[in-house]
Structure formats: structure tokens, C-alpha cells
């Protein structure tokens, strides 16, 4: 069996032309920074090399001061976890949709749109997945500065 380190080395070679800042936080993990415009090409190369599967997409708000949101695409193969990190400005957060390559990512992207307020360009379905129908349009709960006003008001009723 191939070790996670060897698998990650193979992935690093596949991604060489698009890789930005690359780090290995743990022996079985590799984090590769990728610019938003290169994301599709990078994932296409991974799929072409038959490397792993998309296990999850994490939205990570770095806070108001940093002014950035990171979108993490976690690919797993065996024990190896490869994370493509795409940074996007908080004020105009946008990433391309990966659905044309990985159709099952639709649910992950719907979550990203409603929870983090990231525009996912080209995603097939922008409708609410988890949040209630009457949830305000401009409140993205998983952003660090989200004001969950409705809850506060109702708490005041007590």
C-alpha cells in the first residue's frame, strides 16, 4: 500500500503549475494555496490523475481585520488529506463552482453560499439548504461578525 506521504508527493507533482504557498501541517496532510482563477484547472488535474475524492468544503472566515475568507477544498485518498486553500476578499467573496467537475459538490456549495455569504459562480442551485425560509438575506451566520439580530430581539421578550 502506498503511504500517505507518497500519495501527497504525487498530488504535489500534479498541482505543481498552480501551487502557491504549500505546507504540511501533519504527516498525512498537505495544504496547497491556489488562486481562485486556477481552482478549476487544479481540480481537473487531480481528477485526471485519479487522485482522491472531494470529502468536504470548509468556509473559514479569517475575521474583519484580515479581510479575507478562505475556502478549503478537502480531498482524501486513504489516510492522506490534501487541502486546496483559496483565499477571497471578505467584501466581495467569490469562488468558481466545482460542480461541472464534481456534481455532488452542489450541497456543499449551497451551504457555503448561505452560511458564509460567498458567491459561488456557476453553481447549479443557489436555494436555501439549511437556513429557514424567513432567514434575512444579508445575514451569513458563520461569518465572525454576523449579528444574529432576530435571536437577540426574541431573547429580549423574556
Amino acid at each position: 500500500m502506498t503511504s500517505p506521504e507518497e500519495r501527497l508527493q504525487a498530488a504535489q507533482q500534479v498541482l505543481a503549475s498552480w501551487a502557491g504557498d504549500t505546507q504540511s501541517p501533519e504527516p498525512n496532510r498537505l495544504d496547497v494555496g491556489v488562486a481562485a482563477q486556477n481552482l478549476i484547472a487544479a481540480i481537473e488535474a487531480l481528477i485526471g490523475a485519479r487522485w482522491g475524492y472531494l470529502s468536504a468544503i470548509t468556509g473559514l472566515d479569517l475575521g474583519v481585520e484580515a479581510g479575507q475568507i478562505e475556502v478549503l477544498y478537502h480531498f482524501c485518498e486513504g489516510a492522506a488529506v490534501l487541502t486546496l486553500r483559496v483565499a477571497t476578499p471578505r467584501a466581495s467573496a467569490s469562488v468558481p463552482s466545482v460542480c461541472p467537475l464534481i456534481p455532488s459538490a452542489s450541497v456543499f456549495e449551497r451551504e457555503l453560499v448561505e452560511m458564509m455569504g460567498i458567491q459561488v459562480v456557476g453553481t447549479p442551485d443557489n436555494s436555501r439548504l439549511f437556513l429557514a425560509d424567513d432567514w434575512p438575506d444579508d445575514v451569513y451566520p458563520l461569518r465572525k461578525d454576523a449579528v444574529l439580530e432576530r435571536g437577540v430581539k426574541e431573547q429580549g421578550n423574556e
Partner: peptide
């Protein structure tokens, strides 16, 4: 720091970041 934790739940892979 950051870590990723994966476990095989009865329904399949559970993934925590």
C-alpha cells in the same frame, strides 16, 4: 493550529475540520 479528524460512522465517513 488546524487539524482534520475522520471517523467511519455507521452511515459512512464523518469529517471534522
Amino acid at each position: 493550529g488546524e487539524t482534520i479528524s475522520r471517523v467511519e460512522a455507521p452511515r459512512g465517513e464523518a469529517f471534522y475540520f
